[in-house]
């Protein structure tokens, strides 16, 4: 597969890519991307993949940034304990999810426009909240998350795996999940079997905001606090991870496990490029090109196998 070939190329250029430390770093970097991608996957799975009216949530990175900002602010400036800070951050993210849910299912706005608007609004709120300045965090729990390995696996990666287990199980192994997939798979079919799509679609935004809240914790740990602009990079990576991930599924649809693989791929690409001493400014460009190639190859492969 093309993915394998690219990795080989990158590894040949920089053998250090395959070292244990590199792999660990790649996975740690992939973790927040994967978690927000889980959130986006649920929204896409439940909302259908029509480009214009289908399910999508662009506000997840903003929600994550909000969660990060609040956690950082609470820990450093307000002397809160970690559970308190996390609770508040999570609540804030969930509030964004609730707003999305209402706007899409009650007011009836299209998800792409709605979440774009909430994205912008929340980013603005975050800027105000942090006065666009960095907040340093030295809370012991946060540092523990950042630095600890359990059985050789970094904690952020463990958090990613646990989140994956939860989201994956809910979407693919529960009755609710199957109904959700029905709603997103064929709206008319869902209605004809008696499902009420609105409730399911609304719930997807709540799941997405839950992912945003959890990602916030990882972002705080990774950055040792809150830095302005963390949402921007995350948006592109999240969308890439989710949809590149679809190319990995046998049915060529967005899945939770696909999102995780996609996030790892995106992270590998970036790290591989940097280790190959590609200039930072070019990394994004190359990332895009490489991913375009992978996805095209996968599409061609699927088309050939269908004929």
């Amino acid at each position: 597969m093309l993915f394998g070939l690219l990795l080989v190329l990158l590894a040949v250029g920089a053998p250090a890519l395959l070292s244990a430390t590199s792999v660990a770093a790649v996975l740690v970097q992939a973790s927040p991307i994967a978690i927000v991608a889980f959130g986006l996957s649920v929204v896409v799975i439940g909302g259908g993949d029509d480009v214009v009216i289908g399910g999508i949530d662009l506000s997840i990175p903003a929600g994550a940034a909000l969660s990060t900002a609040i956690i950082s602010d609470q820990l450093t400036n307000r002397g809160a304990s970690f559970p308190e800070a996390f609770g508040l951050g999570l609540l804030a993210a969930l509030a964004v999810g609730a707003v999305n849910a209402v706007l899409v299912t009650v007011v009836g706005l299209t998800p792409i426009l709605t979440t774009l608007a909430t994205y912008a609004s929340v980013v603005g709120i975050v800027r105000v909240l942090t006065t666009n300045r960095r907040i340093n965090v030295e809370d012991p729990t946060v540092l523990w998350i950042r630095d600890t390995n359990i059985f050789g696996v970094p904690v952020p990666v463990l958090i990613m795996l646990v989140t994956f287990a939860i989201f994956g199980w809910v979407v693919h192994r529960t009755r609710y999940g199957m109904k959700l997939r029905t709603v997103g798979g064929n709206l008319d079919a869902a209605v004809s079997v008696g499902l009420k799509p609105r409730i399911f679609v609304a719930s997807t935004f709540v799941w997405a905001s839950l992912a945003a809240g959890i990602a916030g914790v990882l972002l705080v740990a990774r950055g040792s606090g809150m830095s302005p602009g963390i949402d921007e990079r995350l948006l592109v990576d999240m969308v890439l991870a989710t949809f590149v991930g679809a190319a990995f599924s046998s049915k060529n649809i967005v899945t939770v496990s696909g999102a995780m693989l996609g996030a790892i791929l995106v992270s590998f690409m970036a790290t591989g490029l940097i280790l190959n001493r590609v200039d930072n400014s070019w990394v994004d460009g190359w990332k895009g090109v490489l991913i375009l190639l992978v996805v095209t190859a996968a599409a061609l492969q699927t088309r050939r196998s269908r004929q």
């Binding site: 529960t174 999940g177 199957m178 029905t182 064929n186 869902a190 649809i253």
Partner: peptide, 23 residues
């Protein structure tokens, strides 16, 4: 019908069978 569902999933669409451990 949902194109990417299996035959089994389609037959049980909206009337899924599950037990304690899920579907």
């Amino acid at each position: 019908l949902v194109p990417h569902f299996t035959v089994a999933e389609s037959v049980f669409m909206g009337q899924e069978l599950s037990d304690v451990s899920g579907l």
